[in-house]
Amino acid sequence: MGTLASTATPAIADRAALRDFYEDYAACLDAEDFAAFPDFFTDDTLYQVISRENHDAGLRHAPIYCSSRAMIVDRLMALKEAALYQPRSLRHFISGVRITGEEGAELHAQANFLIVESLLEQDPQVLMVGRYLDRIVRTTEGLRFAERSCVYDNYRIRTTLVIPV
């Protein structure tokens, strides 16, 4: 449990800085700013969106699996240039940001996410709910995800998963 609470000042970032980092990430996705999104990650990052079912069972398959920043860039390029999907608005709600540990130059953190999707002619619906499990490093450009595993609680994905989580 939160070994590094607000009483201790972590070397890499404090909770407020982390919170800002997460909010910037959410704003980037809400705006579908695909050009800026890869900059939240290190070059050799692991970014994946994985079901809680697979995660808890130790099964490695993830519907979105990027084992490098290059694969994130590829995915966004594919979405922009070579994919067809209905226009949508997404809102990311991030809560419960907690620093769970520190290992060398890395910060371990987690947070809850809730993503609400609004489609044409439909009422907004919960697209996905789950947890971010993160390893974060500080670079000269600021904080970066060395790993972000988005573990979703949804048993099933409704229709499609287009925009990264």
Binding site: Y65, M71, L161
Partner: peptide
């Protein structure tokens, strides 16, 4: 794992 980005609910050739 990498090529499973192609197919599935977020698949490049199935979404």
């Amino acid at each position: 794992l990498k090529q499973s980005n192609l197919v599935g609910p977020a698949g490049f050739v199935s979404l």
